[in-house]
Simulated scan of single mutants.
Amino acid sequence: MSQDTLDRARAGDEQAFRELTEPYRRELRLHCYRILGSLTDAEDVLQETLIAAWRGLTGFAGRASVRTWLYRIATNRCLNALREAGRRRPPEPVPPFDPPEPTRRGDTTWLQPYPDTMLDRVADHAPGPETRYHSREAVELAFVAALQHLPPRQAATLVLRDVLGFSTAEVADMLGTSATAIKGALQRARTRLDQRRHTIDPERVPLPGSPEERHLTRRFADAFTSGDVDGVVTLLTDDAWLVMPPAPHEYHGPPAIAAFLTMFTTWRGRRRFRLTPTRANTQPALGCHLTEPGGSTAHPAGLLVLTLEVDRIRTVTWFLGDDLPRRFGLSGTAG
């Protein structure tokens, strides 16, 4: 950042302001997503952050970097959003058939997937030396979902310290508290996160884009599109989960998952699913479109994200939003 650019931005030059803030837009959006769990909310808060930064630029003293200043605004805007609206839960969808009794009803129904295309260039700004989580691990669905169970300030503290590597003093300044309070919040957050999160040994996860990952994803897609419930079940771990945000229904174990898929396949009848490969949260994903027999237009039917473990699938997360294929740039035209 040059002093000239800062001076021009303070004088009301919008182009200069964009030059100051554009390098951090992508990482700020990801930061908001981690805390909020919802890409829709993250994009809203990012816009609020940039508006607040524009209006407050004259008060920026330059004691911290522009990046740190923006993270302070973004983090507090996230906390304000959670405090003012509680959790903006999406309406629970009404299933078109009577599903079997779920194993449990999930409480993070606002969770949304994050397109890998939005992760491009985020790594240009290397995390600080005190990070505990690899950049890939810190955007996986299991990590983001576990963060949603932490008190908001604990989640923000953990992300700022353990994901981004800001110092204790920097985080205390961002959150307007003491270093002692930050240390306590971080310890509690780490303990809670370990309790909530199922950790898979990285050595047991196929590498992104590897032949093993592609083969397992293709086998799942072939079985799912053909209505081969047994074929899907053979690919699951014994402790697999099927979850479907924003629906709260969650099914644990192959028998429960098979019961749901059997009922769903019966309801689907002669209609066909078309699955288009993509990636979300650094994991293999499949955009879903449902096509009527002989139809040329496929109706959007959400997005499947697969969590893999060795040569099996540990979690199938079926996000049910109709706008998700479009958000991932997937066409609704049947091929």
Rank of each mutant, 00 (worst) to 15 (best):
G86I: 06
A52C: 05
R34Q: 13
L79G: 06
L70S: 02
Y71R: 08
R72F: 00
A74Y: 00
T40L: 07
C32D: 11
C32A: 15
Y71I: 05
R63E: 15
G56Y: 04
C78G: 03
D44F: 01
L79P: 10
T40P: 01
A81Q: 06
L28Q: 04
S38M: 04
L39E: 14
N76W: 08
G62A: 08
A64L: 12
E84H: 08
Y71V: 09
R67G: 10
L57W: 03
S38T: 06
D44H: 12
S65L: 10
T40I: 07
T58Y: 01
V45S: 02
L28I: 15
R72E: 11
G86Q: 11
N80H: 12
R29I: 14
R34A: 01
G59L: 12
T58H: 13
T40N: 07
I35Q: 05
R83F: 03
S38N: 06
A42N: 09
S65M: 06
A64S: 15
A61S: 14
L79Y: 12
Y71L: 09
V45I: 15
R77V: 02
G59K: 08
L50K: 00
N80S: 12
G37K: 02
R87W: 10
F60I: 01
G56D: 08
T58S: 14
A81L: 02
L28H: 02
R29H: 01
W54Y: 09
C32Q: 09
W69I: 05
I73S: 02
A81D: 09
R67S: 09
L70N: 06
Q47C: 11
H31W: 02
L36G: 04
C32G: 08
E48G: 07
R77P: 00
L28G: 01
A64C: 08
L79I: 15
T75W: 01
G56P: 05
F60R: 06
I35M: 06
Y33P: 00
N76E: 10
F60G: 03
